[in-house]
């Protein structure tokens, strides 16, 4: 399973890479909870934005990768900043937009510095106390791993369907693409279900 090539993880040796995944998730949780309070002071939020850039430096990258994480959001962020600046002053614009920037950048940093498999293991361990509520942590792990396996599988089917369409010079409508993709995926699911039964995941 080539999960490493599939994920957003970027290998490295930095202190942030070496932190246990659970710790990183905890820091993120605290940061999110604290943002309700920190949002009252625009200068504190501005300082946190700078700190988030420095964290990327610490991980061995620069402001470019930091911006890459935020770029998909820039239109929404700009809209939020402008509306706040016009209706409640620039301080509010800095505080509210900055908070989103900090949280998104830091969460992305966790993703960039932690391998997918390490996160799966952490989640399975964190789910242990949920056994009381009928959650089977190992079942959660099974679901995640089968899901990870299915992503390249279905992407491969999508590629086949597209090639078949090109070969037949068929139309490029979404529906003509998705119907065969879903039907093939359902057949693939039947085979996968049988494989799971064969390995002792019974009906």
């Amino acid at each position: 399973m080539r999960t490493s090539s599939l994920g957003l993880f970027r290998p490295g040796q930095s202190p942030i890479h070496r932190l246990p995944p659970g710790t990183k998730l905890l820091v993120l949780l605290v940061l999110g909870a604290a943002s309700v309070v920190t949002q009252r002071w625009w200068w504190l939020v501005a300082a946190l934005v700078v700190a988030s850039v420095l964290a990327y430096r610490l991980a061995g990258w620069g402001v470019r990768l930091w911006w890459t994480q935020l770029r998909p959001l820039w239109m929404l962020l700009a809209f939020t900043a402008v509306v706040h600046a016009l209706t409640s002053g620039w301080q509010r614009a800095v505080a509210d937009t900055g908070t989103i920037v900090v949280l998104v950048a830091c969460a992305a940093l966790v993703t960039l510095t932690t391998p997918t498999t390490a996160l799966v293991d952490t989640i399975v361990r964190m789910a242990a106390p949920l056994t009381r509520f009928g959650v089977d942590p190992e079942r959660v792990g099974l679901f995640l791993m089968v899901g990870i396996r299915c992503v390249p599988l279905v992407a491969g089917l999508a590629e086949q369907v597209r090639e078949a369409q090109i070969a037949r010079r068929a139309t490029t409508s979404t529906r003509a693409f998705v119907v065969p993709l879903v039907v093939r995926s359902l057949r693939e699911a039947d085979a996968l279900g049988e494989a799971l039964v064969a390995r002792g995941i019974d009906d």
């Binding site: 679901f143 699911a189 279900g193």
Partner: peptide, 15 residues
């Protein structure tokens, strides 16, 4: 097991 497979495959279709 078939449910698991269908669930996983549909997660992958959305992807």
């Amino acid at each position: 097991a078939r449910d698991i497979a269908i669930i996983a495959v549909f997660a992958a279709i959305t992807a």
